[in-house]
Design a protein around this nucleic acid. Structure first.
Lengths: 349, 349
DNA sequence: TTTAGCACTCTTTTTCCCGGAGTGCTAAGC
DNA sequence: GCTTAGCACTCCGGGAAAAAGAGTGCTAAA
């Protein structure tokens, strides 16, 4: 059943009013918003209909109306006006993005911080690998007889390195050969295969050098595991305390500890919609049943995308959040595009 | 004026009782704790004295007593018994520390997480450099004509690396020479000097290679700056919500956002006391005037120390926190000691 | 279909009162 | 002189009752 134009108008007013004040809206307040085109009795009739249709709810008999999840959904899908950012806002975003660029991980989590402080809600970020990463290249740098630096470049162009100590000395002259060995046998494959290869080498390579290879392969395995693990970072969790829906300390605590200790279960969007909004009970996770999440994704190089999610009460200011978040996502895509448009490529499998 | 033995005993009971229950202690409850050696009237007299001396306070005329900051201070300095950890506790700490070891930064911030969940209060961590770091070694690894990997090893044995793109191509054969140049002129010195040297090279080295050097030196500069910046990590901030003193959401919010947005102003201990306790108003920072901080430091390699601070209400369980924290600090020192002394050995067990 | 009017419901705020907890003081006891 | 019993007093916290508000739903008329 299609709603009349007027019902939609009223619904919109209720949603936006409730978003702004966190107070249920009564018929009188609505009439005011409509600049008196209509009487409060009429509005009451409309409200009764909207309530019956499931778009509005009444906290108790003699209170005003608040939106139901369905009401928010309708609002988000049809009624919400795409806000444009003011020049000051875009300016501010651009400024905050323009700082020194660091490693990919760090940038991703910093982006989360920026978004959080800019939208005024907690956020979380994930780096999502479309396909499993592999090692593209190894390099061993001798420090002295008993230590060396392992450098590992992954297929997503990340480079990691670590200083490693050795139980048994290995002459630095050996290192180029060992690097070569690693590069010919251990690139482009997964952790499991790396381990198999390693086993098969155990009788071809002598003890101390085998130990060295073992260390490096293990290290690479950890790095690959880390990229799979899709580490989630959360930012600004304390911002929820600003909202009256979390004045109840226990609720606040539940949500916050969920965001911190259970990060992995924060929603990630399926498919590749640029932006997704999950309202209250649409969230699978119990801890989020009374909260909403807005998730945007942006591109990071070849086969990765970044996700940034905004968490807030169902009464979240969807229009503003969506506008800011999507601008942010676009800017981040552009930025990573520029950063990563190095010449990748070499051997492919 | 020196307190009598009995006054101290009573003060101790009040402090510990209040720490345990967050309720003011009355004379009757105290008598009970003293197993009736003394009447409640006597206790009341003693309480009146202790209040007059400034060690106790009364929330209102007909409530029991709670410790004043001075009372806590006396308790911490003289009355508190050094708790020993139970075997289960040491076991648990050892277990949580025994995981895979990663880079120094990551370990430090992970240590903070562990401490936080183990003591049940929020924590923060800092890596404190006793003297400025320098670059110990550079290494350049060619990827193709237009990109290369810069590896930088710092004087504190950290190794960092990054993939870099070039505006102008540089033949890979050039890289060893450039590395050598870097290693001879840019190691062991500060950022300022590096820049001076770089300038003086500008007419000896041609354009594309100069650009490359410039990039690497800039990168090294950032790394050095980062070690100076003493980045602060906070963990488990939401734990404060468990405590009744922060049931007031605004107070909780103040403290949490301070810990998150103002990390840099969290106290770091002066001198090199192994552990320091700051009680309520002893904290310089307004946001911490009603909270206490326990800070421990531990050694990380050559010229660095790590700090881990525990933040809680003034009613914090000092004895337990101090015991756990100092055990943690010792274990961390030992662990970093082992990790950083390059030729380790596995033995004992 | 819209509107004015009104009784009704439910929440919130205020007020008042009472019981409990704990104190400080006084005067007597050791 | 220290300790103790006794007691009046203060203050907080909780609960009941009352008052104030806010907003509704319904009816009947425009």
């Amino acid at each position: 059943m299609e709603l009349t134009r007027r019902k939609k108008e009223i619904l919109k007013i209720v949603v936006e009013g409730y978003i702004a004040t966190a107070e249920p809206m009564g018929s009188k307040a609505i009439v005011e918003k409509m600049s008196g085109k209509i009487s409060s009795a009429t509005v009451r009739n409309e409200l009764a209909d909207l309530t019956e249709l499931g778009y509005l709810e009444q906290p108790h008999t003699s209170a005003g109306r608040i939106p139901s999840p369905a009401g928010y959904r309708l609002y988000v899908n049809e009624l919400m006006e795409k806000k444009a950012l003011s020049p000051e806002e875009t300016e501010e975003i651009n400024r905050s993005l323009s700082g020194k660029m660091a490693g990919t991980d760090e940038m991703i989590s910093r982006a989360g911080q920026m978004v959080s402080s800019f939208v005024g809600y907690p956020t979380y970020t994930v780096a999502d690998h479309k396909s499993a990463a592999t090692v593209r290249r190894f390099e061993l740098i001798g420090v002295d007889e008993r230590s060396f630096i392992a450098v590992v470049m992954l297929s997503d162009s990340q480079v990691k390195s670590q200083l490693m100590a050795l139980e048994l000395p290995v002459a630095p002259e050996q290192l180029p050969r060992l690097s070569h060995l690693l590069n010919t046998h251990f690139t482009g494959i997964g952790t499991a295969e790396m381990n198999t290869h390693l086993m098969s080498l155990s009788d071809q390579v002598d003890g101390s050098r085998f130990l060295l290879l073992n260390r490096v392969v293990e290290y690479a395995g950890e790095l690959l595991a880390k990229t799979e693990r899709q580490e989630v970072f959360t930012n600004g969790a304390s911002q929820i305390l600003k909202f009256p829906e979390y004045r109840d300390v226990d609720k606040a605590h539940d949500l916050m500890s969920f965001m911190v200790d259970n990060k992995e279960n924060l929603p990630v969007p399926m498919g590749d919609t640029p932006m997704q909004i999950l309202i209250g009970p649409e969230n699978v996770n119990d801890a989020l049943k009374e909260s909403s999440v807005v998730i945007a994704s942006y591109d990071i190089g070849d086969n990765m995308r970044g996700l940034v999610g905004v968490v807030g009460p169902t009464r979240m200011d969807y229009a503003t959040v969506a506008a800011r978040l999507s601008y942010f996502a676009e800017s981040l895509s552009a930025m990573f595009g520029k950063k990563n448009q190095l010449p990748p490529k070499e051997e492919e499998e």
